[in-house]
Nucleic acid binder design. Structure first.
Lengths: 138, 138
DNA sequence: CTGCGACTTGAACCGCGGTTCAAGTCAAGG
DNA sequence: CCTTGACTTGAACCGCGGTTCAAGTCGCAG
């Protein structure tokens, strides 16, 4: 048997993903097994890298379908690169929002206001954290 | 009738939330209606502010239960402030990760590598974006 | 040949965050 | 009075991202 091929258990262990998740991703078309050893899936080592990419994207809030479309990038993938640029912009928005919220939480942790949710600084900070910082101040 | 009290439809319209969401939040204990006008909920205007806070927290990835516990902040809320500090730290991690991923996407959008997912710079960038940047660089 | 244990399958189930639906209640207006 | 229309309820349902389960199938060791 080709020593370089990986059993699903191997892949699961190395990626930290559950075998059920790997099969799920396969059904969703995110990964594929190179061959079967009897019934058993045999994965190319490259799949580890691909799974790294997937896990990363997942943890960044991308959906399965979305990731699938990005992974489909092939020749003539200009379209996909554009999508990625759009996504990068969205991420920027999200990052800015999270920063504002973090600042609000930071303040909350250090201020003494009693019902807290009434602390005017906290409220201001939260207000600033509103999605789509529609420049209209209050 | 007290003109200052808001009907659920009013609140829905002003917050952009669906009435069903408002009822849902009420069941979950995140908000409460001040009174009933017949069967109809009548909300204090303050609820708008609270909902702003809730929407903000939701969009930052906080769960309903989690938000509930934060909103419960009352006197002796030191415990909750500590939780908030912890959350702020988590947000920082998340922000850093999103920044790395955004950088990877930025690169992807501008580089010419053909199967893209094989672009070494892209792969490096994605690798850097791994959650829990366990400093061990491959 | 006979286990054993790691895999296979499809189908059912889970928690989350709501939405949708049917059936009912109410206040106001004509 | 009767209609209209926005609300009320509980229960069922949804999409997402998987997990769990029962039943079956392998390869390999003894």
């Amino acid at each position: 048997m080709d020593e370089t091929l990986l059993d699903i258990g191997e892949v699961a262990e190395r990626t930290g993903l559950a075998p059920s998740a790997l099969r799920f991703y396969e059904r969703q078309g995110l990964i594929s097994s190179a061959a079967r050893n009897g019934l058993r899936r045999a994965y190319l080592p490259e799949v580890l890298e691909r799974l790294g990419l997937i896990m990363c994207a997942r943890s960044a809030g991308f959906g399965i379908a979305e990731i699938g479309s990005f992974l489909g990038a092939g020749p003539g993938d200009q379209e996909i690169r554009e999508k990625m640029a759009v996504k990068a912009g969205e991420l920027n928005q999200r990052i800015a929002q999270l920063i504002r919220l973090r600042d609000a939480l930071d303040h909350a942790a250090t201020c003494d206001h009693e019902p807290l949710t009434d602390c005017p600084d906290f409220k201001r900070a939260v207000w600033n954290a509103r999605t789509e910082s529609t420049a209209s101040s209050h």
